[in-house]
């Protein structure tokens, strides 16, 4: 089993506050992980460090053995690390087709081509159409994203990340705010993600965490509290105390 993503002694300080405290963790290729922890545990900071939004105070981030600590977010995406956002980050005036087509075209390296019409490369069109079909967005592919129902927008959020063809995918609360009746669509998509993609799910919903994750990492006060197989973490009394004990696992 090879390591897809790992951090080594990762520290992030904001003034006197230690938001990430010496986190060393590795994510194995193709496994499903969940990152949990009470509010303020440092989940968002860790995600920002992994994706390059923030630079660590010390320590390093490695993607498939390559040190990516100094890379900016877009370079990390090109190296195979994609993400979704907890709050939709889409292009409101663009259609799902344009959005996914853009991501595919960028990944295939056509993004700087200014002499060709967008939509004239069949590799881009075919792949974008296939992704939209897989996500059930074909019917809505031609309407502006901003008029889509929230659940569809959440699906598009994941579809764009998949269009980057990542080897590691960070899902930040993918089902957050989705109405109950549209929820199963998101869960089906998440559980059907390609097996060779390493997935790290940041999630509050314990049902989703335990139905999805093979391994769980628990953050408390910025530090890695424990990391282990899902059932071991669920059974650990200390975890139940600091996190699940708050009534999360219903």
């Amino acid at each position: 089993m090879t390591t897809a993503l790992e951090t080594r002694n990762l520290v992030k300080r904001f003034g006197g506050l230690v938001a990430t405290n010496d986190v060393t963790i590795s994510f194995q290729q193709g496994m499903r992980y969940a990152l949990i922890g009470p509010n303020g545990a440092g989940k968002t900071t860790l995600v920002n460090l992994l994706t390059g939004v923030l630079r660590p105070t010390s320590g390093s981030v490695m993607l498939e053995g390559q040190d990516i600590t100094g890379m900016s977010p877009f370079q990390r995406v090109r190296s195979g690390l994609a993400r979704t956002f907890q709050i939709n980050q889409l292009f409101p005036e663009m259609t799902p087709l344009e959005t996914v087509g853009l991501a595919v075209s960028e990944r295939q390296g056509h993004g700087r081509e200014w002499w060709r019409l967008a939509g004239s490369k069949s590799e881009v069109i075919d792949e974008a159409a296939a992704i939209l079909e897989r996500f059930g967005l074909t019917d809505a592919m031609g309407v502006p994203t901003k008029v889509l129902p929230y659940g569809k927008q959440r699906l598009l959020e994941i579809a764009v990340a998949i269009a980057c063809r990542p080897r590691v995918l960070l899902l930040d609360e993918p089902a957050a705010g989705v109405p109950e009746e549209e929820r199963h669509e998101i869960l089906d998509i998440v559980s059907g993600l390609p097996n060779d993609v390493t997935v790290l799910l940041i999630e509050h919903d314990m049902d989703l965490v335990f139905s999805f994750a093979q391994r769980i990492a628990v953050l408390v006060n910025g530090g890695l509290f424990m990391e282990g197989a899902a059932k071991d973490v669920a059974a650990d009394p200390r975890v139940r105390e600091v996190y699940l004990g708050e009534g999360g696992h219903g």
Binding site: F74, F85, L90, F91, P92, R107, G111, W114, K121, A161
Partner: peptide
């Protein structure tokens, strides 16, 4: 020609949401 090219599409993306534009590798 330029605004309807893949480059032009990426510019619109940058204008609409730079955060997401970076997150698709632009």
């Amino acid at each position: 020609r330029v605004v309807h090219s893949p480059f032009g599409l990426s510019l619109r993306a940058v204008k609409l949401n730079p955060l997401r534009a970076r997150a698709v590798g632009i």
